[in-house]
């Protein structure tokens, strides 16, 4: 680093520090979620489809969306089921 770089770089945030901070967040997130949530989500989704299909005909795997979001210290499981129009009328 020379004297000119020293003057001009002062304003920029140190990129290694940014990298470390980002990595610590993503790595701790992936460690806590890798064994638990990631693996069971597809199974959970399939089981939900199976249950709903017992009561509504014409439901397929694209009608159910399961998402797990982590916000700070709590996780939110979001379930979105689009019922087929026919089934809705019958119910």
């Amino acid at each position: 680093m020379n004297i000119f770089e020293l003057i001009f770089r002062r304003q920029q945030k140190n990129s290694a520090a940014v990298a470390k901070e980002r990595l610590q967040i993503i790595v701790s997130h992936e460690r806590s979620s890798s064994q638990a949530s990631r693996d069971f989500l597809p199974v959970l989704q399939q089981e939900i489809i199976d249950v709903i299909a017992k009561y509504f005909t014409g439901i397929d795997k694209n009608s159910v969306r399961v998402e797990l979001q982590r916000m700070g210290s709590c996780s939110v499981l979001e379930l979105n089921v689009a019922l087929p129009e026919q089934a809705e009328e019958n119910a």
Binding site: M1, E5, R9
Partner: peptide, 9 residues
């Protein structure tokens, strides 16, 4: 120069 993660990081 703060451009690369250190080994301690």
């Amino acid at each position: 120069r703060g451009e690369m993660l250190s080994v301690n990081d």
